[in-house]
Amino acid sequence: MTPVLNVENLYKSYGAIPVLKDVNLAVADRETLAIIGPNGAGKTTLFRTLTGEVLPEKGRIEAFGEDITRMPAARRVARGFGRTFQVARIFPDTTLLGNLVLAVEARKRNAGERLGGLFHYKPSADTLANAEQWLAAVGLGARRDMEARFLSHGDKKRLEMALALALGPKVLMMDEPTAGMSPSDRVEMVALVKQIRDRFGVTVLLTEHDMDVVFGLSNRIMVLNYGQVIAIGTGEEIRANQAVRDVYLGHEVQHA
């Protein structure tokens, strides 16, 4: 079976400084892969090359057997890539429902559907129903008419997740989904991701600093350091890996 994502010898530098050095990675369907590593290791940059926000200098990215190395970000979305950001990106001056309407309409547009005729400038009933469904799925249904900028940090992340999910992604990439959250919000977020992953059968890639979240969610873990993959494997294997202990996890492993 072809992997969902296949990355070969990916190389990216900013100026003279290499940020990703020959990264290789294969992601199987429906697995959850966590990418960990110290700050500045290149996790976000790896995400950005995968989603098409930046282009790598060398290497190759394949998704579902198709070469997407130079494909623009917006087109990768249509291929099934969804993304959340380290700092949630939402539409702040729009209501929560309005946020989701945008996503649902975008999905329909990507699928080639026409959005109403000359006199139907309002979102269709079907769009609205769909949008409400997604809001409910992340537990924000009750606040549909609130403008998004008034949400708490954690709720913005939920909304962002709904925005990404409403596009029907096959691969959901989450950059530090629990950064800056309270411990209780974290627990809720992990539960939500699990629930969504199992319900919609998406492949999940995430970067994360919190080891409880990492070990709680992922089937496999990849460790990046200075742009290099130093280990990849199951939680057990990573815990046992001496190189990882040396450069990164250190005492945290004993805690976890």
Binding site: T51, A74, V77, R89, A106, R109, E160, L167
Partner: peptide
């Protein structure tokens, strides 16, 4: 940015 991640 978010808009382009709606595939737009």
């Amino acid at each position: 940015e978010r808009t382009s991640f709606l595939g737009i």
